[in-house]
């Protein structure tokens, strides 16, 4: 029998490999092509940010990586395996996903939410599951007293933290983030970015995120992939991406709102 756990960061395959991907949605009146022959490779240990205009298919791309959408053509491989091979039992030990609004189960407490993937394995004792969930809960900066709260009692930042703890409960090597700092005030946003950075360092995570927030983008990314014209027009280090000549890139990074964030690029050599 094949081992349940996947090859880990020491393996040779790239973490994510997308080849000639087509995403097509059939509308009643027309056919909407979101991605056309899209190629993207994410190496292990990277923090890749996907940027693009609204409707350019950033979230659809995340959903393709997760296997929530089926490719029309082309294929998506994660650690050399197809998404189908990776889903199913113990999937949270392979990919963690932080949804934009947290997607915490509203009927469970925070602790039950975090422990849910472990409990579903049905092989671990209750005591160990609770302890492991408490460790993750505190690792993402929540207090032990928050464990018994219901998701409806949490603030936006706490929901994101709890959802992150749930995504990380089985220490997956790949973490996907959809707008991790959207809807957070600047303080919580900074705190969340710092948390993500330290987790990336400590757990040797590969992170793929979709974000509009330029501060987050430059503080975290080791690479930026720009989605436009139904494909990835450039996928490179932040400095190279800014220098790329394309109307979208110029408007996004060199427009007025880009200027302030560019300051950060000088302050945080980490990002380069």
């Amino acid at each position: 029998m094949e081992p349940v756990a996947p090859p880990r960061p020491h393996g040779r395959n790239p973490m994510v490999e997308i080849h000639k991907l087509w995403s097509v949605f059939d509308m009643p009146d027309r056919r909407l092509v979101i991605h056309k022959d899209l190629d993207l490779v994410v190496q292990r240990g990277e923090v890749l940010s996907i940027v693009g205009g609204s409707g350019s298919g950033k979230t659809v791309l995340l959903r393709q990586i997760l296997g929530l959408e089926h490719p029309h053509k082309g294929h998506v491989r994660i650690m050399g395996q197809t998404v189908g091979q990776l889903s199913g039992r113990g999937a949270s030990s392979r990919i963690g996903m932080l949804f934009q609004h947290g997607a915490l189960f509203s009927a469970f407490t925070v602790l039950e939410n975090i422990a849910f993937p472990l409990r579903e394995l049905k092989t671990l004792p209750h005591k160990l599951i609770v302890e492991a969930a408490m460790v993750k809960l505190q690792m993402v900066g929540l207090k032990p007293a928050d464990a018994d709260k219901m998701p409806s009692e949490l603030s936006g930042g706490m929901i994101k933290r709890a959802a992150l703890a749930r995504a990380l409960i089985m220490d997956p090597p790949l973490l996907l983030l959809d707008e991790p700092t959207a809807g957070l005030d600047p303080d919580s946003s900074d705190g969340f970015v710092n948390l993500l950075r330290s987790l990336h360092r400590d757990l040797a995570l590969t992170v793929i995120m979709v974000t509009h927030d330029l501060d987050t983008l430059f503080e975290l990314s080791t690479r930026i992939a720009v989605l436009a014209d139904q494909r990835v027009i450039v996928n490179d280090k932040p400095r190279e991406v800014i220098a790329y000549r394309h109307p979208f890139v110029e408007d996004f990074f060199l427009g007025e709102r880009g200027q302030r964030a560019m300051e950060l690029l000088r302050e945080y050599p980490f990002a380069i």
Partner: peptide
Amino acid sequence: GEWTAGQFARPHLFRDLL
């Protein structure tokens, strides 16, 4: 070996180890 949650998903393995 791998002392990970993914490995402990196998039936009986965890109990036998303990």
